[in-house]
């Protein structure tokens, strides 16, 4: 580790990501009710999908999955992620918008 710089595109991106969302909190607005509800529902779905992905990785690490099981689980999770992102896009939501802030519990994703 020999670099310490004052400017970096990745950090700028991090800052912009944090600035770009209207708010991290769940906000239900009468004018944007469909998008707000979609954000809540799809956010929870993506949260559960990521939990399953982590569990699958853990089982790979411990060697308790056969090759066929890895293929099946991987395909399912990959397609589930694509489907959730496609649905989110239909409501004008980016993948980053699906991270729900649960206050004291932190973010779901």
């Amino acid at each position: 580790m020999n670099q310490s710089r004052t400017q970096d595109t990745a950090q700028a991106q991090d800052i912009m990501d944090r600035l770009s969302g209207a708010t991290d909190r769940i906000a239900i607005d009468p004018d944007t009710i469909e998008q707000d509800l979609a954000r809540v529902v799809l956010g929870l779905m993506e949260f559960l999908r990521q939990l399953m992905e982590l569990q699958a990785i853990r089982r790979m690490d411990t060697g308790t999955l056969s090759g066929d099981q890895e293929e099946k689980l991987g395909t399912t999770l990959m397609k589930a992620e694509a489907a959730i992102h496609d649905l989110a896009a239909k409501f004008g939501l980016k993948p980053a918008d699906l991270a729900l802030d649960l206050g004291p519990l932190g973010k779901t994703i």
Partner: peptide, 29 residues
């Protein structure tokens, strides 16, 4: 102070099969 550990990623991995996808996620994790 804001601290960033940035990674230079040459090319994103986009495996087409389930096993490759899961392995790529394992590496990312």
């Amino acid at each position: 102070f804001s601290i960033a550990l940035a990674v230079q990623v040459s090319q994103p991995l986009c495996p087409q099969d389930g096993r490759g996808w899961l392995r790529a996620r394992q590496v990312q994790q």
